[in-house]
Amino acid sequence: MALFLSQLFIGIGNGVVYASVALALVLIFRTTGILNFAQGEMALFSTYITWKFTDHGMPVVLAIILSMAISFIGGMIIERVLIRPVESASPLTIVIVTLGMFLAINSLAQLIFGTGEKQLPSPFPSHRYHVLGTTLTAQTIGLVAVLAVECLVLYILFQRTKMGLAFRAVANNVESSRLVGINSGLMLMLGWGMAAALGALAGAMVVPTQPALVPSSMQSVLVLSFAAAALGGFDSPLGAVVGGLVVGVADAMTHQYIDGLDQIELVVPFALILLVLLFRPNGLFGKTVVERV
């Protein structure tokens, strides 16, 4: 029981991060229909920025906030400069562009920050609590709280503000949104900006749980987050959160309880992606297109 609980807590802690990155993926997919393969590397770059600030002695929370702001602007620039020109190109072209960004951003990070291991401090205290015979870390509680706040902020933004309404309008029908006077280009830039900022936050959450910040820090996170988004449905924010938690817990549990799997990385997310694509291509919460006739 104690072992099960401790794996559950680890799973939830990881799952929260996958959920954050999956939320960013969903945000971009909903507004532009693009699967952003560079999401993980964008988050990596942001995390290096966060690290740079802390390295200069800035408190970690302030560093994260600053890095999120910079990433927001960076995301907007990426949309305007790299994505806009291929906006109406074939899906394959766009996939290639985001894969190119994946490689380019990773290389750029190595070039600027070097390949050495960096230590990023955790924004959470190191308290441990004993619950039902196992330990629950402040880290896990903090991660869940951050995700909860993130979801709440996004919910209010999208459902309760005029900008959120415009955003959803663009996601639903670009042409009609322009006809009612919405600057759809600006909305798409904001979408990428927000996704980049979410990535910065997720990076700062996950890296302190890893041995060190290295150029490959976000790669397995991206795969697990893709699994989370595929599981929940690429167009569903709720699906991203649930998917992230399921993937995190499933990953932790299978490695604990199924012998041999602990040697193979990423088997769970790939198996999940495969199963979802086979049996429920729209994901658990994804929208099956039903048209009134």
């Binding site: 309404l165 415009a166 309008a169 639903n172 042409e175 009609s176 006809l179 009612v180 006077g181």
Partner: peptide, 26 residues
């Protein structure tokens, strides 16, 4: 200028009220 396109171009995923509010967006 308000253009009601052929095939209506409503925001099918949004509610009726949200569609109307978007009409007054600008």
């Amino acid at each position: 200028v308000a253009h009601v396109p052929q095939g209506r171009g409503t925001f099918t995923d949004l509610t009726v009220e949200e569609n109307l509010r978007l009409g007054g967006y600008a």
